[in-house]
Design a binder for these strands. Structure first.
Lengths: 127, 127
DNA sequence: ATGGAGGTTCCATCTTGTGGAAGGTCAAGG
DNA sequence: CCTTGACCTTCCACAAGATGGAACCTCCAT
């Protein structure tokens, strides 16, 4: 399987796949002409990576997840622990974003939005 | 005012202030010895920047906001419009994060987290 | 004079890719 | 057999928004 083929199947652009190889997330074989050849297992890993990234896991965490995935004697507690840490990070981000949203919405609400210069948004930023 | 002094007052580290100068957000004068000298206006701009960044505005948006701030004949509608775009982006991020959180929480909930290898989280990622 | 606290510049690093240039390869059609 | 276009390769640069460190300069106090 060539790179664009596996890309289509895994849902990742070739550029990203080359990048994942570069940082050691996959190690596809090479043909005599230098082209990468992807096995079913490579495809599997790439699809796994795409889903883990979509859930917001960092690349480092994906590395650990892949490692756990391939370790038949893993403890599910280790996976859960990783996921919990990630969840905590998401919650922190959500809280921060929510705080920003609240403040910003108030300011927008207070601003007339007409053609006069007076503006509560700028006033608050300059406070 | 030297860089660390203005940094303390504006709530920004010197490194960040140098960076802001590099990208043209401020243009402090220089003393004969090469040291930056910050005016009250520079301080004002830096504090403005810190608050705008804390609200999640990009540096480019901060540039525009500063421009509007100093334009006495601005229309508050322009500021509001910028802020609205930013709010929309925040909402999009919130939605994405929320979606990730929901999925992740379900998976965590389904995982026993014991010392056995069976794990719904990995199963889902490998789906 | 010397020491330490500040200042300066420049370069590297972080994260997660993406864009593009220069060039090799393959398969199909004329 | 040759050309054309679609792929493939590597390598370098850039994005945002800083941050860390090295090497070196300057000022002030003792």
């Amino acid at each position: 399987m060539n790179i664009s083929e596996v890309g289509k199947r895994a849902g990742l652009p070739p550029k990203t796949i080359r990048f994942y190889e570069e940082i050691g997330l996959i190690t596809p074989k090479r043909e005599a002409n230098g082209y990468r050849v992807f096995s079913e297992n490579d495809l599997h890993r790439l699809a796994f990576l795409r889903r883990a990234r979509a859930l917001g896991f960092t690349v480092q965490e994906c590395r650990q997840l892949l490692h756990l995935y391939e370790d038949e004697s893993r403890a599910s507690a280790d996976v859960k622990s990783l996921a919990r840490e990630h969840l905590a990070r998401i919650d922190a981000q959500l809280e921060e974003l929510h705080q920003m949203r609240t403040t910003l919405a108030e300011l927008i609400n207070a601003c007339m939005g007409d053609n006069r210069p007076d503006c509560p948004i700028l006033r608050d930023l300059a406070r």
